[in-house]
Structure formats: C-alpha cells, structure tokens
Amino acid sequence: MQRELELKLRRIAVEVRKDVLRMISMADSGHLGSAFSCVDIIVYLYFHLMRVNPQLPGWQERDRFVLSKGHACPSLYAVLARRGYFERQELWNYRKLGSLLQGHPLYTNALGIDAPSGSLGMGIGISCGMAMALKTDFPESRVFCLVGDGELQEGSCWEALMTASHWKLDNLYVIVDRNGLQMEGETETIKALEPLKEKFEAFGLFCLETCGHDFPSIYETFAKAAQEKGFPKAIIAHTKWGRGITLAENGEMPVKASLSRNQVTLLLDELSKESAALSEEER
C-alpha cells in the first residue's frame, strides 16, 4: 500500500471519529466504543475498496455495504457524508425526531444506506440474498458485510454462513469487528466465540485475520482474500473498542456513556492531537 494512500485514509478516519463523537454527544445517546472500533474498516471500504458512486447511489452495478451491527451507524453516516452522499450538516440530526439518520439505519437508498439493520444477526443473511442476486446479474459486484463479534451469538448468522458457502458466494465478504466486547462484558466470558477462525473455516469460508486499525494490513488482507475464488470470505478484524480514545481503549469508559461537555472537549482534543501527529508524519 502506498504511503500516501495510508496517510490519506488515516486522516479521514480521525475526522470521521471526531464527527462520530460530536454526533453521539449531541444526541446524548449512541454506542461510541462500538462505533469507533469499526471506523477504519468502513473508511477503507468507502474511500478505497468499494466501487460506488455517491452521485448515483442507486447504480445497480455498485458494490454493497451491509452494516449488520446497526448500532455502529454513526460511523457509517459520518463516512457517507464525507464521501459525498449527503450534507455533513445532516449528521447533527442523528437520533433526533424527524431525522433521516435514525438510531439504527433505515434502508435509504438516496443516502447510500444499502440495507436496514438494528436487530442483530440479520446482516449476513441479507448480504447472502444480495450476493446471490448480483452473482447472476452483475458478477463484478461485491457485498461487504460488517458484523459485530458479540452479534455472532445470534443463530441466524450461522444459518447465513451455511447459505453463503453452499452457494459459493465468492462475491461476499463477511468482516468481523472483533473488539472482544459486548453489552455486559467480554465475549469470551459471556459466550465464547473462539476458536472463531476455525468456526468460519468449518462453515466453508475462506478466513483471514487482520488488525482492523492498520490500513496496510487491511489492504493486504483484502487483496489476498480477493484471489480466493469459489469461497465466501471471512475477515476477522482485530480491533479496539473505542479506538482513538485512551479512556475507552483502557476499558475505563462505560458502554453507553453520557458525555459531559468537558469530556467531549477533552476527547476531541485527544483526536486533534492524533491529527496533528499525522501532519508531522506527512512532512
């Protein structure tokens, strides 16, 4: 991966995190840590990998993105706005009455939202349906489905994985945001997912692991996965809950934090420092 591209994506990711933080603090609700853990993946998809056209959100041959972990939608919204699907101004209405940007995503083609979500465990199945239809109509089009790790406790995910491998949906990429946490604690304490890679493989998927915050590693993983024909792909992206905020990364922030104005300012400062450090690197 070119250094230039990496720096560009990192810069976007910092700006997206700032927007997400503002959105959640203005709405005074939302899932900050879980949204932050998948920012880099969504940025990578929309600003590098996916074939999309914000001017033609209904373009049939586009790649699709399904955010199965719908509660992380502030990150998707912030990315879509930055990618040019709608005015960034709209972000500040997130979770407000009458807003286009609901607490969990409604299917809204005009905004670039490809699928509904919010009730966990349905995204992989929807993605299967899309991938099956696209395979016959537009074989170049791919479907990228981002699932939470805790969400994999829903049985419907595994029904869908069976469907994916049975139909050899090699245009489907299931990406796991493996931040290790769910509402009441660690996934491995509540109901263990490991050995996760082996589970995916046993279900007939070609599975790779990556760091979900390191763009060169994400780049290489997707490049490697793309070469594998005849199998749906699973990519376990190891991530940090609340990535970018030290407090959250260290587990010192509650899952559903209500942030005071002071806290928001402090957190924005922290993100701005990251952005300043990036500028240093660029020189």
Partner: peptide, 19 residues
Amino acid sequence: VGIAEQNMVEVASGMALAG
C-alpha cells in the same frame, strides 16, 4: 436455503434490495 426460515426471509430481503 434449507430448514432456515429466518435466513430465507433475510435472503429474500437482500434479493429485493438487489432488484
């Protein structure tokens, strides 16, 4: 899709989304 009604409805939804 086999004995999997939940998956069936999800797949139908995805198919509709893809036209």
